[in-house]
Amino acid sequence: MSEWGFTVIQTNQSDMDQMDRGLIAKIGNAEPSIFWCIGCGSCSATCTAAQFNNFSPRRIIQAIRSGQVKDIMGEVNKCLLCGKCQLVCPRHVNTRNILLNVKQIMGQDAI
């Protein structure tokens, strides 16, 4: 649309009714503790990978739960599975297994 000089912008607003329930269904099944997360962020605070990039386990869990999983793979690949997240979680969320599952599921989907 060069003649207009502008285009319609896609909305940023997430429509929760249209969200992708696929991943959360699979992961919730494999690791139900994903539902216990209260978003406190202690996992992101201790995360080894997060010291070097904008990786955030809390955000990933959030994204899976709200079905915004489009760009999640690139993010999940930053995880080192070092397990500190699990050690600090006040709700006993097995964040490491959640991330591992995402890696596995997304890897399979990719094939």
Binding site: W4, G5, F6, T7, V8, I9, T11
Partner: peptide, 14 residues
């Protein structure tokens, strides 16, 4: 600003 008009358009479209 011409470059920003997509914002106006998109809000009305909504």
């Amino acid at each position: 600003i011409k470059a920003n008009r997509g914002y106006s358009l998109s809000n009305s479209k909504k």
